[in-house]
Design a protein around this nucleic acid. Structure first.
Lengths: 302, 302
DNA sequence: TAAAAATACTCCATAGGTATTTTAT
DNA sequence: ATAAAATACCTATGGAGTATTTTTA
């Protein structure tokens, strides 16, 4: 029994006559007669009672016809679904982001625009540290990730630059620098910093500490916190100062002053990272959303 | 896309290599390679990423493989179900019975034995008057019916004799005939009879009235009732007497005496009636349950 | 370099076509 | 007598086989 039999059964049921069903199927009457006979032989029971003015299904034929309709529909839906997934118009896309990255306007735009452009795709967003994200990408538990450097050194990765933001100093409103328009890193040598726990330390923290050392001081660590947003709250309650990407400005939720950080060479980069040759068309479409002007890009293998 | 593709997809998914999958399928590697390529061409998206040590499914391939498993199972279940229905081991069998017929031990035995022998068949029993049953059989709303004569006069019916029962007289316990061992119809000429409503009058009532007329009297009708069981209750409360098939003896539920009716020529026949050439194997099996010794019977059309 | 997939070709099984016979009312 | 299905026979598409080349880690 194969798909041809499904169509024969359905046509025969709807027409009630081998001759008319064959006509609808675009074949001659004898081949259809043979198909039905072959199917009855294979299953071992008669499916249609032959009558002088056509055929009528037996009880066995009736249920087989009903199943044939279901299976034929399943074929069509399966083909359609696979096609849509292959074109990136359906399926699931798992995208990771960092706590700070999700505040970036470019990241927000890309996600919003992708959702609007591909409503059929189930976009699953997950927050992780950049290091976790890279591990998940490597284990294929994630399709793409908005990560911050350092990127994995090995081959087999593709990194698409998304944004590069300036860093700003976050200070308590009462701080003597709170009303400055900009600060140099050297001026912060005597400050107490709110940093991340060593355990979860993201690349950003490492880069800030390195920059301080290049500026001639080792930053004094006060409170340690697990999240950037907690760091800003710590700043608000006077536990110290911290340095965050500029897109965090405005998310301090009160009590925090943000002052531009000049001449430090510090910046917060965000790249969209994926495995090379990732077969997901949805991921390709997502990447294309970063730079809509990028030419070509369909997975052409000819 | 046809059923061969389903099996190719499943084997290829389980083996992870075209070469090994082809081996499992009992074909050479190139044909399988071509099948997959053909399917990818038909759907328009790649289904497997070719790698130097085998192939891995793309996201589109993965869902198509999952659907392929479902559809392949559906094929197998459909074939199996149709085969079982064609053999009378599954499906639905609608059997009608009359109120009085269902008390007959042969009818009870046939139904019990059929249920035990064919547990896969959904046996739907419906109570109807014989005349209603014949109408339902004609409209194919019923497969078989335990009916009482008169049978339909036209062609196209098959009637299998099931039982022929004697008739008994049902009397109140206080009746002067209550302790008799038998009665002749003539002795009932002065009695008041409990009969069925004219509207639903079954063949049995007509035959009783005819028999009385042959015996030289028109039975005096007292109470009219819609069911045999109500007739027996009316007898119990002294509303009159009635004549019922012998299998009702013991179902009077107190207050009723049953006395054999002799020499009246009256008897209550039950036949299993069905349309001729009814295609249901379940119905054939049910009929065979009446006389298990009947030889042959499988629907052989060779 | 080696293992696997792709290509090139050949063959044959079978779906489908044409002509005709059989069947059942 | 007629309409439909079954049979007989022929054709040709495409699935499968064998030999070989291409690909990529």
């Amino acid at each position: 029994m194969d798909r041809r039999h499904l169509r024969c059964l359905i046509a025969l049921d709807e027409e009630g006559s081998i001759t008319r069903a064959a006509e609808r199927l675009g074949i001659a009457q004898p081949p259809l007669s043979m198909q039905i006979k072959g199917l009855e032989r294979e299953i071992g029971v008669p499916l249609f009672a032959r009558q002088p003015r056509g055929v009528v299904p037996t009880p066995a034929g009736r249920v087989l016809i009903a199943r044939a309709r279901e299976i034929e529909q399943a074929f069509q839906r399966a083909q359609d679904e696979a096609r849509r997934i292959g074109e990136g118009r359906a399926g699931r896309l798992r995208v990771g982001f960092t706590e700070s990255g999700i505040f970036n306007p470019v990241v927000i735009r890309v996600i919003l625009e992708y959702r609007a452009a591909y409503p059929g795709v189930d976009l699953a967003l997950e927050e992780h540290l950049s290091t976790e994200m890279i591990a998940k990408l490597a284990r294929d538990e994630l399709d793409l990730g908005f990560v911050r450097p350092p990127l994995p050194p090995e081959e087999g990765w593709t990194a698409y630059p998304v944004a590069r933001e300036a860093m700003v100093v976050a200070l308590p409103l009462s701080h003597r620098f709170a009303s400055r328009t900009s600060l140099h890193l050297e001026e912060l040598a005597d400050e107490t910093f709110v940093f991340f726990h060593r355990r979860v330390r993201p690349g950003l923290t490492d880069r800030i500490i390195s920059a301080c050392e290049r500026a001639g001081f080792a930053p004094r660590t006060g409170q340690v916190v697990p999240k950037i947003t907690s760091a800003l709250r710590m700043v608000a309650v006077g536990a110290g100062i911290t340095i965050v990407p500029a897109s965090l400005v405005g998310f301090g939720a009160g009590g925090v002053a943000f002052v531009a950080l000049g001449g430090s060479g510090l910046s917060a980069e965000i790249v969209l990272l994926g495995r090379e040759n990732h077969p997901s068309a949805a991921a390709q479409n997502f990447i294309r959303q970063i730079a809509p002007a990028r030419p070509g890009g369909s997975p052409d293998r000819s």
